[in-house]
């Protein structure tokens, strides 16, 4: 989370950054992240009810959305120019369409979820990210959600934090990762180059870790 924010804060204009990462641990019950506006006590209760290990760190994201259980998911962040204020729905649609196209090029079928038109949409957020799809989430043909994400807009830059369930694809994460790189690159018209994180970003992330993401003042602020 700290690295995501460091990259987000230091992003050059008109530049996209796509970062893949994993949480330390065995891939089972490694960490929980939750949306910026969620109430910590409610998150704790939901995590306990979910049966997730209670010693997993609970970390408040800078982005919106609900609870994400990091237990072997494919996690990534995308920092991008968001100069003109546009609906988050458009961003989700573009990003998840990109993922859909990248996955399709590797033989994986997915589609963007849309609610039945007869169903009235009630504003709100699913408490848990994979408890059900929301409009523009990426789903499998059987309707189960495989990719969800959350957004933050600061100035003219956007941060998307995504979580993909790899299990249904029965494929190595590296194949799914390549699909995302290709799809997002095509959709955003970006040719990604692999880069080490610069020292300034690492230093900024370390500061953010110590002053924000690892401290109760941030994680338990509500």
């Amino acid at each position: 989370m700290a690295l995501d924010e460091a990259i987000f804060e230091g992003a050059e204009p008109d530049t996209c950054y796509l970062r893949f990462f994993h949480w330390p641990g065995s891939g089972h019950g490694d960490a929980v992240t939750f949306g910026v506006s969620m109430v910590y006590a409610k998150v704790e209760a939901a995590v306990a009810a979910h049966g997730f290990p209670l010693n997993a760190p609970l970390i408040r994201r800078a982005t919106g959305g609900g609870i994400v259980y990091h237990d072997g998911d494919l996690t990534f962040s995308f920092v991008f120019p968001w100069s003109r204020l546009s609906s988050p729905g458009i961003i989700y649609k573009n990003l998840h369409l990109a993922a859909h196209l990248g996955l399709r090029s590797r033989g994986f079928e997915t589609r963007l979820w849309a609610p039945p038109s007869a169903v009235e949409q009630v504003p709100g957020i699913n408490t848990e990210c994979f408890s059900g799809p929301e409009p523009k989430d990426l789903i499998l043909p059987d309707g189960s959600k495989v990719l969800g994400g959350a957004l933050r807009r600061r100035g003219e830059t956007g941060l998307y934090q995504g979580s993909m369930r790899p299990e249904p694809f029965h494929a190595e994460k590296s194949i799914l990762k390549d699909a995302l790189v290709e799809g997002i690159g095509l959709q955003w018209k970006v040719l990604f180059e692999s880069q080490e994180l610069p020292g300034e970003a690492l230093a900024a992330a370390e500061r953010l870790r110590h002053t924000k993401y690892a401290v109760d003042r941030w994680n338990k602020r509500r």
């Binding site: 949306g35 910026v36 506006s37 800078a62 982005t63 919106g64 959305g65 609900g66 988050p88 729905g89 961003i91 989700y92 504003p123 957020i125 929301e134 409009p135 969800g148 994400g149 959350a150 957004l151 933050r152 807009r153 600061r154 100035g155």
Partner: peptide, 14 residues
């Protein structure tokens, strides 16, 4: 200065 946050559908805005 960023002073407030507004959240809509899974998106937070400074």
């Amino acid at each position: 200065e960023a002073v407030a946050v507004v959240e809509s559908v899974k998106a937070a805005f400074d």
